[in-house]
């Protein structure tokens, strides 16, 4: 939902970032206002996932220039866990398995870390159980998953649903979904998309990183950006995704090459 008067949540200016000395992001500019849903599309290697990791503060990526302002504060000055507690959420393309740590404990510790960062008291185990079981319904996840180790032995679809459950629980201001649609069958895609739509409000924003138009049938973006060579080369409405679907990326990347 576009509202010109909405406040800016994220403002990225001239961002350059490298991994092991190779520059991946080259002068990226990007702005997100409250209530908006953005889709970032592009070929493999265009820098989409790198951008999501830089936002979340992955230690392998070094920001060499530019700035990221998140809700008025300098995001680059924060540690990864501080960024999360400030309201940045990244749904992982490949969620990690954590043997021996139950999903329930993991979620509770994460939830309480967010509360603590806001200066609120930790929630007790019983209230948390009620809360997490209620939120599990958003992604139609059976509560038995809560007592299994985090993502261990989960199918691809279950892992992605678990990511959205975490998002439902932590209620971030800015959610970045990195290829959340990859590896999902159509039913799982509908469930996950339904969850994302339910969680989308006028006060938060969502960034979808995807290769395919398919996801955008279910989560309809306000803006579609095409990324190439480490920055955004074209921005349009949801129809741009359809155009990409039929024409591919060549016509855009060829233009970029000329520029």
């Amino acid at each position: 939902m576009i509202n010109d008067n909405a406040k800016t949540i994220l403002s990225v200016r001239n961002l350059h970032a490298s991994v092991e000395g190779t520059e991946i992001l080259r002068g990226l500019n990007f702005e997100v206002k409250a209530g908006e849903i953005h889709a970032i599309m592009g070929l493999n290697g265009s820098g989409k996932s790198t951008f999501s990791k830089v936002l979340a503060g992955h230690p392998d990526y070094e920001v060499t220039a530019g700035e990221i302002i998140f809700q008025g504060q300098d995001l680059l000055a924060l540690e990864p866990h501080e960024r999360a507690n400030a309201g940045i959420f990244l749904a992982f393309q490949y969620p990690l398995e954590i043997p021996g740590v139950s999903n329930r404990d993991f979620l509770r510790v994460a939830y309480n870390a967010h509360r603590k960062a806001r200066g609120e008291e930790e929630i007790d185990v019983f209230d948390f159980d009620d809360l997490v079981e209620e939120r599990s319904e958003i992604v139609k996840m059976d509560v038995s998953f809560l007592d299994r180790s985090v993502n261990e032995g989960f199918s691809g679809g279950e892992k992605k649903r678990n990511e959205i459950l975490q998002m439902a629980l932590l209620q971030p201001t800015l959610s970045i979904l990195d290829e959340t649609d990859s590896g999902l069958d159509i039913d799982a895609l509908k469930t996950v998309s339904g969850g994302v739509n339910q969680l989308s409000t006028a006060d938060n924003a969502t960034v979808l990183i995807t290769h395919y138009q398919r996801l955008l049938n279910y989560v309809v973006p306000d803006y579609v950006h095409v990324m190439c060579g480490g920055h955004i080369i074209k921005t349009g409405g949801k129809e741009l995704a359809l155009e990409l679907e039929s024409r591919g990326y060549d016509w855009l990347t060829a233009q970029e090459a000329v520029v």
């Binding site: 979340a56 503060g57 992955h58 230690p59 392998d60 540690e79 990864p80 866990h81 999360a84 507690n85 959420f89 990244l90 992982f92 969620p95 990690l96 954590i98 993991f106 510790v109 994460a110 870390a113 967010h114 960062a117 975490q166 932590l170």
Partner: peptide, 16 residues
């Protein structure tokens, strides 16, 4: 690093 990053992304400090 990646496991710790996953925890961190959920707001959990490296020590925890």
């Amino acid at each position: 690093e990646d496991q710790l990053f996953y925890f961190a992304q959920r707001g959990i400090s490296p020590e925890d």
